[in-house]
């Protein structure tokens, strides 16, 4: 399996799983404007995933298209970050997850837009603009929740505390990334940490929340070791293709 395929698949899986999570809010969002916003965010992420899957399939050269990669792999073959598969929880958890991811994704896509791989660079250039909206949206909401009522403050703090163990994985890399970083294709995620810290800490402070102090971090998404939540997500997302293989309309 080539490093480029693996790398592209990781990016695609994170975008798809987070996009699917956000789509779970459709019909349940706390207000109409937020229903539209979360749907828009999901659409951006699933659009990014489609472009990445199509490219991964072409790189692999075994005839797998975006649908085969999204619908016909099981948990252990998914390579997404653990953060993005965490359940929506209450609205505060969804917003905190979006902030922690987007504060990473925005500088990540910006830097990947300078990749020597022309296709990844093109996908990244589009995704960067979109992730800027996502970051702004999540940041504004976290401030509103944290600096809102006692109840919204309590929930926003609980959300950050719940998700914090998954932020360490954002900045990890393995041999796949290292090989591609050396070729000028991939972004070294560790290099993005200072910028992520600055933007996240500034928003947490403005939200009158406290950055969790925990340092124990979970990881494993890169090697397909997931939390129990991913299987449930896939069971819903992949149901149609599992029950009616090859169905289309």
């Amino acid at each position: 399996m080539s490093a480029l395929f693996d790398y592209t698949l990781r990016l695609a899986d994170s975008a798809l799983i987070l996009g699917h999570r956000l789509s779970e809010w459709i019909g349940h969002a706390p207000l109409l404007e937020e229903e539209l916003a979360l749907g828009n965010l999901a659409l951006d992420l699933i659009g990014q995933a489609r472009a990445l899957y199509a490219y991964a399939g072409a790189v692999e050269g075994k005839g797998r298209d975006e649908d085969a990669l999204a619908y016909l792999r099981d948990c252990g073959q998914f390579r997404n970050l653990l953060l993005v598969e965490q359940p929506n929880g209450d609205f505060a958890v969804t917003i905190a997850r979006q902030l922690l991811y987007s504060a990473f994704a925005h500088p990540f896509w910006r830097d990947l837009a300078r990749s020597r791989d022309a296709t990844l660079a093109a996908i990244a250039a589009k995704a960067e603009k979109e992730s800027a909206y996502h970051l702004r949206h999540a940041g504004e909401w976290l401030i509103r929740l944290g600096d809102g009522t006692a109840e919204s403050h309590r929930r926003a703090q609980a959300a950050l505390d719940t998700l914090w163990p998954y932020v360490g994985e954002l900045f990890e890399s393995d041999a796949v990334e290292e090989a591609l970083v050396n070729q000028g294709i991939a972004v070294d995620p560790a290099a993005l940490r200072p910028e992520w810290e600055r933007s996240v800490q500034a928003i947490i402070a403005e939200a009158t929340l406290a950055a969790p102090a925990g340092t124990g971090m979970q990881s494993g998404g890169r090697i397909g070791r997931h939390s129990e939540h991913l299987g449930h997500l896939l069971a819903t997302m992949q149901f149609l293709q599992r029950a009616y293989p090859g169905a289309s309309w």
Binding site: L43, I46, G47, R50, E130
Partner: peptide
Amino acid sequence: TPTYSGCP
């Protein structure tokens, strides 16, 4: 060219 990645 699409306006947004997920433009339906």
